[in-house]
Amino acid sequence: MSLVNSIETISLSSLALSLIPALLVLLIFTRWSLNVMHSVYALIRMLSQLALVGYALTFIFAAQNSGTILLILFIMCVASSWIALSTVPELRLALYKYAFTAIVLGGGLTLLLITQGTLHLTPWYAPHYMVPIAGMVFANSMNSVSLAAERLDSELHNTHSYIEARNFAFQAAMIPVINSLFAVGLVSLPGMMTGQILSGISPFIAARYQIMVMAMIYGSSGLSTALYLSFVKPTYARHYS
């Protein structure tokens, strides 16, 4: 079968084979007396979430409704903001509004620029583009805010000044994103580029899309993190006063 015309469907039995490395990692957790149940829960949750989202996206793509898409984006922001603060559970409720605002602004403005300025989506909410791109934007904003939240809290416990703690936190949060910029094309071919090449799109066009994605991820992560670190300063000032 030619990959130019279609992408091979993965059977359930073949999919099961892909879980073997994950099961080996669980075995390592068990043999080394580590918290294996946390990983088991994460894997089960991943499987159930992706199975459900497959059905949900089929409905969303068929609906072609702007209100539905806006609701999906809102849910993404609510969930990503809550998950981002799992690294600082004792301040989660106090900091949630700042994480939410930072992700909405940093991620949302980047999403708006990409979908309406770069891609010129028609209609503006085109689900096949909007939903997966929003997922990449808000997920990476979430990860960076989460790293920044943990590092900021840790640095302030070590009695650094807020400016020093903020700078350390921002640099730490951006390490994974910056590393991905160095690695793309040399160490890895990212998901979007790989998927497009497999579906038969020219590698030159796929490269342009990947450049867009990498710039989008770097921008949304950096903006969301910087906004979060700026918003939370008064809360930490009260907390450590």
Rank of each mutant, 00 (worst) to 15 (best):
Y96L: 09
K97A: 13
F100I: 05
T101P: 09
T101H: 09
A102V: 02
V104Q: 02
L105P: 09
G107C: 03
L109E: 06
T110S: 11
L113I: 14
I114M: 14
T115C: 13
T115A: 10
T118H: 12
L119W: 13
L121G: 04
P123A: 10
P127K: 11
Y129G: 02
Y129F: 13
Y129C: 06
M130F: 09
P132I: 12
A134P: 00
A134G: 07
G135A: 02
G135P: 01
M136L: 11
F138A: 01
N140F: 04
S144G: 08
S144T: 06
V145D: 00
V145M: 00
L147H: 00
E150G: 08
E150L: 00
R151H: 04
R151K: 14
L152V: 00
E155Q: 11
E155M: 08
E155D: 14
L156R: 01
L156H: 00
T159D: 10
S161H: 03
I163K: 14
I163R: 12
I163A: 13
I163M: 10
A165V: 01
A165E: 00
R166C: 03
N167K: 12
F168I: 07
F168Q: 05
F168N: 02
F170R: 05
Q171G: 10
Q171I: 11
Q171M: 09
A173V: 02
M174F: 07
I175K: 10
I178Y: 08
N179M: 09
S180Q: 12
S180A: 14
L181Q: 15
F182C: 12
F182W: 15
F182R: 14
A183S: 14
A183C: 12
A183R: 10
V184H: 07
V184P: 05
G185H: 08
L186N: 12
V187M: 06
S188N: 15
S188L: 15
P190T: 08
G191M: 09
T194S: 13
T194K: 07
T194G: 11
G195N: 04
Q196F: 06
L198F: 09
S202K: 08
S202Y: 05
P203Y: 01
P203G: 03
F204I: 15
I205H: 11
A206D: 03
A206H: 03
A206W: 01
A207L: 15
A207P: 09
R208F: 13
R208L: 13
Y209W: 09
Q210Y: 06
M212F: 07
V213I: 15
A215P: 05
M216H: 01
M216E: 06
I217L: 10
Y218V: 11
Y218W: 12
G219C: 13
G219F: 08
S220W: 01
S220H: 02
S221K: 03
S221I: 05
L223C: 08
S224A: 13
